[in-house]
Amino acid sequence: MASLVPCPHCGARPKEEFTIKGAALARPTPDAGTEAWMDYVYLRDNPRGLYEEYWHHTSGCRRWLVVTRDTATHDIEHSRDVALSQLTDIRP
């Protein structure tokens, strides 16, 4: 795995500074139904290749990031601040 993780705020930082939550999935709406919630909480695509994950820069800026990473090569393609990128989507 990447020994260094690019943080959009702090630059490349050692992996040990981060906490990994897992798949960066959109949380279903409360009334989305059992299947959608099962999918969100329990089922994973678990791809071999590019994967979007939530990483928290715990010992740094404490921002939650979406890290796009290749699970076969460990190369990190991209990382973005999850809140800022969503807000940009909302208010371009």
Partner: peptide, 18 residues
């Protein structure tokens, strides 16, 4: 303590940034 803090930040930033 640390876990809840991370969790709250997750909720605030990833789930409900608005």
């Amino acid at each position: 303590a640390a876990g809840v803090m991370n969790h709250l930040e997750f909720c605030a930033q990833a789930l409900w940034p608005d």
